[in-house]
Design a protein around this nucleic acid. Structure first.
Lengths: 164, 164
DNA sequence: TATTGTTATACTCTATAACTATA
DNA sequence: TATAGTTATAGAGTATAACAATA
């Protein structure tokens, strides 16, 4: 809209930009994370809390250091996260090596995780309201292929590092 | 794994949790955003910068306040963002109302946006490496339906608020 | 008095590094 | 000396609020 040559305008090269699948994935993904954060926020949890609870439930007895590695965060952050889960997670000193803790869910932690699962189911349903069951299955299959090829660790996503 | 009743374990209700489409969307979305950030980082830009450039290119002459609204951020943040786009974006005082600026891309800004588009195309291709052209089209269609039903504004996503 | 853009301040979040205890 | 966990400090990033110019 000005000088001699027009380096571009919104031409062909822009096709993969804000209208491509990659952009939509990022946009919908961020939206999904926000909505999920709202839902678990009603339970007094952040998405990071949920990730931690799930990880502990899946493999009880792990140390904080092991969790830090799996989450891709620094050990000191795990301290803060677990401090915020008072009453849901229990720290037991290991008998074998009393330097580290073994992490377990309390009974209330288990109930809370159940509530999280119900929230996740409602979230899933609301997010995919536009699709019928067949389409949902189709989408799931495509996403699984992409996730596997991109070598994304099942059950953990970078968003665990923040959000509220 | 302990007391009387087992409130849950990893039973049916957890089905929509870390294995559902909503979770995968959030996970892949965050991954996509990170990879895109890396690519445009080589151009000296953040994803937020890119969003701003695209928005200005799409509708030149807008004011900073208008952009702030569309991006969903506070006006003072737009000041910071535009300050970081020295040489790519031009502020022209409006003749009609000299309080506000009219924002335009410079020639270099246009060239940079062209480079961004090429980066986005490469990003798209790498992210969807697991899918053939038909599957990509299928995925795109499904995502478009979801985005429309969720009333996501085309071209802007919440991730513009941060990242690097 | 209301509005655009700017600057100054405060707040939140996270990582880095120093520290304690166990080994 | 090395490692698990904790605490203290500092850094990045963002919003809130006070400010100057124009209407």
């Amino acid at each position: 809209m000005n000088s001699s040559r027009q380096p571009h305008t919104t031409d062909t090269a822009a096709a993969a930009g804000p209208r491509g699948a990659a952009f939509l994935l990022a946009q919908i993904g961020a939206h999904a994370a926000e909505r999920f954060a709202e839902r678990v926020g009603h339970l007094g949890l952040t998405p990071a809390d949920v990730g931690l609870l799930r990880m502990i439930a899946g493999r009880p007895g792990r140390s904080q250091r092991a969790l830090a590695e799996d989450l891709g965060v620094v050990p000191s952050r795990v301290v803060t996260l677990i401090d915020g889960l008072e009453g849901l997670v229990e720290r037991r000193r290991s008998a074998e090596d009393r330097r580290n803790y073994e992490l377990h869910l309390t009974a209330e932690g288990g109930r809370t995780l159940g509530a999280v699962s119900r929230a996740a189911a409602a979230h899933e349903d609301a997010l995919l309201a536009a699709l019928d069951p067949d389409q949902r299955a189709l989408l799931l299959g495509l996403l699984e292929r992409v996730a596997a090829e991109q070598e994304l660790t099942p059950g953990v996503h970078p968003g665990y590092r923040a959000r509220g």
